[in-house]
Each structure stands twice: as C-alpha cells, then as structure tokens.
Design a protein around this nucleic acid. Structure first.
Lengths: 337, 337
DNA sequence: GATACCTTTTGGATCGTTCCAATTCCACCG
DNA sequence: CGGTGGAATTGGAACGATCCAAAAGGTATC
C-alpha cells in the first residue's frame, strides 16, 4: 500500500511549486486560470486528498465545529442539530455532533475530546447537573462558545446565550387555556431546579397567580414516559384538574396517551398545551396545541452568529430571546360550542 | 492572547525532554513512575492541551470515526447513532455524526469532508438514491467502511454489511396477523425500489402468497406524515383491508393517528404491526405491536466489529443479520375474545 | 531601453507531535 | 573495578500543509 499523494506530488506533476498548489487549494484569486487548471488536472490524476491535519497544524483552524446536545433523542434537539449541521456544511464547516444524554460527566469528556480535535468553536445545550467543570475547561481553551436553549447560570459574560422567550410562551398558553374555560391548570414535566424548568413554568405561574387560581406542578423527566406516568397521577390523585401546560411536547404526547389509555381522551374534558411544536404535534390525535419555537430558523441564526464571531466579528449579544407563538389545535379547544 | 503551551513547554517545566513527555502522553510503560508524575504536574500547571492535529500529521490516525445516517430524525437511527457514539467514546474515539437527510448529493459532500478530516473509519447507513459516487470515493480512500441497516447493492465485497433479518420479521408479523384473524393485510410505507423496502416487504409477500391472500402495498416515505396519508387512502379506497404491516413504526404511528382521526381506532376492527420497536411503540395508545430490533445492542456490536477491523483485525463478515422478534401489543390483538 | 509597478510564482521556515536510533543511567556480575 | 545488559531518556528527522518575503514575469510609462 503506497502512501497518499501530497501537494508536492501534485506540484511535481503539474510542473509548479508546492506554494502554487497551496494557493489553488485555498481558491486564491491571484493564480492564473491556466495554472489553476493544470494543478486541478494533476490533483484529479493523482486522486489527491487534502490533508486537513497538516493544514491545521500550521494555520490553527480546522473548520470543525463542535455541537453538544443534552438529549439527542428529543426531536426538538434533533431538528436543531441537523439544521445547524446542514447550515454549517454549506459554509464549509464540518460539525461534530455529540449527545451528552443529560450526563454531566460524559459531557465533560466529550467537550475535552472535541477541544483536542481542534474544533474552532462550540455550540452547547448543557446537560442538567452541569457543575461548571465543563465551562472552566472551555474558558481555558479560549474558544468561541455559544450556549443555546438552556443556560448555565452566570456565565453569559463568557459564553453568550440564545434561546426562546419561554416565559412569554407559557403565559400565552395559560391565558389561552383560561380563555377556553379551564380553571385548574397543572404544569407537567421539567426537572425541578433546572433554570429552563423555571422559565417555562414562570409564565404559567404568573398568570395563575394573577387570576387567583390554584397551582399544581408535577415535575419529572422531559420524556414521553414521564407524561404517561403523570397522566395516571392526575387521574388518580387530582381529578379536579381540567387542563395542563406541559414542559415539552414529548411530555404532552405521553400525557395524551395516558389519558386515552384511561378512556378519557384529551381535548374534551381535559385541555392540553405542549411546548416546542415538534412535527409530531400536528400529526397526533387529537392534534396537540403547542408553543411553537421556530427551531430550524433558530438553528440557522445560531450558525450565522457563530460564523460571524469565529471570523473575527464581535462576540454576539449576551442573552438573546427569539419570540414564540402558540399554535392552538384540538387538544386545547375543548368541546365544540 | 498568548499561544497554547506545547509539549516542549511542558518538557522544559518538568525538566525532561519532549520525547519523554510524548511517551507519557501515550501512556508508555517504559517511563519511570516518578518522571511520569512530574510531567503530569507540569501539564496541569500549564493547562496543556494535546494537539491531535500535530499528532495525526505524524502518525496518521486521529481517533476519529465518521458516521453518516440517512435520516437522523427517525428515532431508530437516533438511537443507533447515540449508542454507537457513546460506545466509541468509551474506547477513546470521537465520532462525527452527520445526517444525509436522504440526499445522495449531500451525503457525498459529507463523506468527502470527513475523509479530509482524517477519519480512521466510517459507518454508513446510505441514503436512498445513492448512485455509487460516494462509494467510489470511499473505495479510493482505502478506509475501513461498514454499511449498516441499509445496503447499496453489490459492494459488500468492499464494504461489509450488517443489518437485521427484516424478511423474517415481516413474515412473522404477517403470520401473527393472520393468526389473529386478519385476511386482507396491506403493506404500508417504504420507498419503492429501495432494497430495504424489498426486504421488509418480502416476508409479508411470501406469507400472503403461500396463504393465497390478496396483496396491497402503499409505498411512500417512511414518515409519520405518510402514515397519516395512507390511513386516508385505506379508509377511502380500500375499506376491506383489515390489517397492515408497516415499513416502520413512524408510518405505523401515523397510520394509527389517521385511523383515530377518522373515528376508527386501531386494534379493534383494524390490526396493525410496525417495525423497529422504537421506545414510543410501548407508549402509544393503543400500544403498537412491532418487530423489535435490538438497535442498541446492534450499535454496540457494530462498534466492536469496527474497532477490531481498525486495529488490524480482519475485515468482518460480508453480510451479517441480527435476529428480530415480534412484540405483540394491543394494536394487533383484535377484539377481546 | 531603462524604470516602475502590478501580477504571478517560488523557496524556505514553521506548526506540534511521533518515531527511531542512539545515548545515558544504573544495578549487577565476574 | 571494568564490563554487561536492560530500562529510561534523549535529540533529530520526519509528517504535509501554510505563510511570508522575495524573485520572476509582464506591461505600461517615460
């Protein structure tokens, strides 16, 4: 097995110097069209493959972006990850996607590995229980780091944060439920203590307080399984509850399945609103009302902000909130008038 | 901003040579414990970070594995991807996960980019419509490449293939439906012409032919949206159909939602079996019967086979099939006796 | 024909590791 | 006390690109 050709081989074949080949590789405008052509032919003939490791060693930028996601199984994050990756790919960056699986220790290892591989920037939606270790590590590395969708407190000076206006969304959802006749509105899902849980709950909380209504919150993992579980709890222990705002759509869909299982389909006596508006929300039965976050658009914006920062632009704003809006579907409308 | 420390800096601080530091880095047993210790202290003091690009330049192995997935939004593949990544991470390899989104052209670009980044091996579940370009590229690179879950025809001599015994699974599902009383069993989903569609359909086809029963197949994308659409088609145009085997669980869940929407809940007059047994199958209402593939186990096996191959072992078997088994749940059982 | 100027091309140094052969160290032996 | 051999350490040469300053080539101006 013979070794892969290098720019030297290409240069020899094309009858130019290695520097010229390098310029061609970088798409420099200062090489004559004719020369460029012959270099390109030589590359094709030799089946040359660019060695980024070598390039990086000298120029310190690999065109690699890291993406660490707390839970890649959640379609909301999958959508974000795939869109971000495709957008960055369009700009010539490769993305290392990693799933921390809500495990702070694993997350730390993943980030360490990415730094070693010479990523030029990192986008992270931090795992619950992040202790700060990961962020210390990142701070030392001096890399551009964007926090998205979730925040670790008090570090936004170092790592700008972007997310959605969750509080406004949950307030809107709650007001909507009240307008449709609900009076005892539970909040379901979200691990207690996590900042994002607080945000998604706060709008609900404020609206209910302002209206002098009771508050009941069932906290837990943000999964379909917890939704199923919560449905049982609600039916058995809190039969008076007539609506729920869920931490996310997975919980809401689980809750919906749980109610259906118990013979009390959602949308009639029980009204439900989810969060994230994942694709499935419009495909379930009954269709799920949800606070819609334009996650694909958000991913594209994130890519743009990151690229701007990486290529010498300023650090982006510390705390950016994208607007959300409620999409009302059958699950929250209640009995036909 | 001053430059990052190198092994030379570490060596100077620890009072040894760069070669010794390199040996420590590689965990060589031939360096004295005491020396190792002082080197490690120096590294910690300087907040040294290993530069893999430089290492790779010299040694030609970055510890990077590429993973290209046709559709990362499908939970079946997400599960595979995350498990594979976590397993490889345990062995010190970083994984670049990329989503080709069923787009052969994008897939080709992604693979090209990965090769440039110096991946040591690639795992790929190819996109539909793969024309062979991608595989030519890979063949030239000489990398270990494992095809999984889907196959591009006639290349298994170059790129070993591993998957599940889909045909047996669909036969089992079909026999099960017949045993429960179904007689007109449709097959729903799967793009026509794709080898995997053929496999998942063939078991159904054989069993029906053997039993002298009618066959109706509705082909389309393997998504929830197509399932919804298919439900309408079945109800409007083929009311006599009393059961379906679906290409995958997403289609089945979409179909289920479509039937529910039309006021004809699945599980009673209409029996349904999906494929993949994703987590949601056990959480839907009614619970979805599905041909279960142990995807996490498969991902771990894949990682093991790949590591063995990469580290000098033989090329794995050309065509490996893992067994599947039917998990019967409410959606296929029919009315209680 | 000499000069200036712009475009295109070039050689050599450099990036931070690993690898190899060579050297030093050290304990033990005759 | 010199010799021996294994363990521990070391210096220098790669690896394959980029970057930079300088050289060569070409054109227009005087």
């Amino acid at each position: 097995m013979k070794r892969r050709p290098t720019i030297m081989d290409v240069a020899a074949r094309a009858g130019v110097s290695k520097s010229t080949v390098s310029l061609v590789l970088q798409g420099s405008p200062q090489v004559r069209a004719e020369t460029r052509k012959s270099v390109e032919t030589a590359m094709a003939d030799l089946a040359y493959v660019y060695n980024r490791a070598a390039a990086n060693l000298r120029s310190a930028s690999v065109g690699l972006v890291g993406l660490v996601i707390n839970d890649l199984r959640n379609p909301f994050f999958t959508e974000f990850a795939t869109t971000l990756q495709m957008t960055l790919a369009g700009e010539g960056y490769a993305t290392i996607i990693a799933n921390a699986d809500e495990d702070a220790a694993l997350q730390e290892k993943l980030v360490g590995s990415m730094i070693e591989h010479g990523i030029s920037a990192l986008v992270i939606s931090p795992a619950y229980g992040e202790t700060g270790e990961t962020f210390d590590q990142l701070a030392r590395s001096g890399l551009p780091v964007l926090q998205v969708l979730r925040r670790v407190d008090a570090r936004t000076d170092l790592f700008p944060f972007a997310s959605f206006d969750y509080a406004a969304g949950s307030a809107e959802a709650t007001r909507h439920l009240i307008a449709r006749g609900a009076r005892r509105i539970a909040f379901v899902g979200g691990l207690p203590g996590a900042p994002i849980t607080h945000e998604r709950k706060s709008g609900w909380c404020e609206v209910l307080t302002a209206g002098g209504l009771d508050r009941l919150a069932l906290h837990g993992k943000s999964s379909r399984a917890f939704g199923l579980e919560a449905a049982e709890t609600l039916i058995d222990s809190h039969p008076q509850v007539d609506a729920a705002v869920c931490f996310n759509d997975l919980v809401a869909l689980g809750l919906m399945a749980g109610f259906a299982r118990a013979g009390r389909p959602v949308g009639d006596a029980f009204r439900l609103v989810g969060f994230d508006d994942i694709e499935e929300a419009a495909q379930s039965w009954p269709q799920l009302s949800s606070v819609s976050c334009d996650i694909a658009g958000f991913a594209r914006d994130t890519a743009a902000r990151l690229l701007a920062w990486m290529t010498g632009g300023d650090r982006p704003a510390r705390d950016l909130r994208s607007p959300v809006h409620l999409v009302a579907r059958a699950s929250s409308l209640g009995p036909a008038a």
